[in-house]
Design a protein around this nucleic acid. Structure first.
Lengths: 237, 237
DNA sequence: TCAAGTCACTTGTTATAACAAGTAAAAGTT
DNA sequence: AACTTTTACTTGTTATAACAAGTGACTTGA
């Protein structure tokens, strides 16, 4: 008479228990076999219920080991001075931060970047792809496109240091940043990079940076695990 | 030899076809039966592949009808003047905007709101819950907590008009807004309200509003469908 | 003692099967 | 013509079954 599917009522029951603290963060949930007996349902139903929890970010399953309650701790990423002081900002919060340069090369300007950087069709930019680590765990991927001459001049340093401090150290002033924050889903490729299940929410920070004279300098996208990152900002009248 | 599960390779194949435009937005995908024959797999595998697409926000299934490619159109929500001019902002983009007042009542201040509004333990606030509609479709839920005396005084209007214009019309100046943008998952309750599958990403805008003398006036959370909303902002040096 | 192998237990993938329930068009009835 | 019923097709839920694959502890052999 409930009309609520079994897998939902089971996952809701488990969710309540997780939120009530019956299962602590990091703790192992009962195995599928145990849950089958507890709720007197088949394995497919138990698996569906567990999948519901995983898709809600409440649990994570590991083949051969079990299903574990995911501990939640989000890092707020302050937009008062975005990306520029990310490293310091995280250090202040006691978070170990490193990044790994995956790609740095010159490419033909992609169409969407042409518009953002106000570049002609037959231009080139430097494309950089970085993997950001927090406390040893993967947190985000950053893909950015920087003006060709800047990329050529500072390439060596950009591969090893954060972008904004590097630019400012060479007298390239950042005057304005236009940004869009949106949510996407992890596709198969991203789920591999960021070590999350397919379809998990990711938070994308798309930024266009302008120097003096409103000249666009770089466009980038920081795609973060939504369970580990959030953005904070303060707006005044 | 590929080591990639069948359901993944099928959903990836379909994803490519969708992104290539083989299936247009709103168009119906082949039925499960057809996909079973096309890929020569069982129904459970086809269903898993379709579930992958749904969890990535690429498709939506409707019982009795079929699976349809979801058309993507996001509304950027400008943070230059947040919430205040949402209505006008949307109107300018040609989007019909309405809201429905679900709840408006006085409650004991919840613990998390006490901290945000700097209120004592034994205080009360007015709690309002609104359902925001865009072009006739549900887009977001807004839950806000407003100082008791303001709620009492302007209750009648707050039920029918947007919050910020109402306050400003009565001379309550908004001086500052502290906000956090984060991503969450739709739990069972939210998935019902916002008409999305369980676990779909939602984008939460949590705001604390301050009037003159840095006095907190209201705290609220706007929970939007991440497939329909994003936030844009501009930061100057 | 240490390394290799075995075994029990875990989740992951996939197949077959049956019924429920929503949708829409065709067929039948008034 | 208008309404109702049937029917075919769709996705949703759930059960049973088998094997694959990762993990860790225990056992065995050198």
């Amino acid at each position: 008479m409930s009309s609520v599917p079994l897998h939902i009522s089971i996952s809701e029951k488990l969710r309540q228990q997780i939120e009530a603290g019956d299962y602590q963060p990091g703790e192992k949930l009962p195995s599928e076999h145990q849950l089958m007996e507890t709720f007197d349902v088949s394995r497919i139903t138990v698996r569906r219920a567990v999948a519901n929890l995983v898709s809600q970010g409440l649990a994570k399953s590991q083949q051969g080991k079990g299903v574990f309650v995911t501990p939640q701790k989000k890092v707020a990423y302050s937009l008062a001075s975005p990306l520029m002081f990310l490293e310091q900002d995280l250090a202040r919060k006691g978070i170990q931060f490193t990044f790994e340069n995956l790609t740095f090369r010159k490419i033909r300007t992609p169409k969407k970047v042409q518009a953002m950087l106000q570049l002609p069709i037959k231009s080139t930019v430097y494309f950089q792809k970085k993997l950001l680590n927090m406390d040893g765990a993967v947190g985000a991927i950053d893909e950015s496109y920087i003006l060709s001459d800047l990329g050529k001049k500072f390439g060596a340093q950009l591969k090893q240091q954060m972008t904004f401090p590097t630019l400012e150290a060479h007298g390239i002033a950042i005057e304005q940043i236009d940004a869009v924050i949106e949510c996407t889903h992890a596709d198969y490729k991203m789920s591999g990079y960021l070590e999350v299940p397919l379809g998990q929410p990711l938070i994308m920070y798309r930024y266009t940076t302008y120097g003096s004279d409103q000249q666009p300098i770089l466009y980038g996208e920081t795609i973060s695990r939504a369970d580990r990152f959030c953005y904070s900002l303060s707006l005044q009248k």
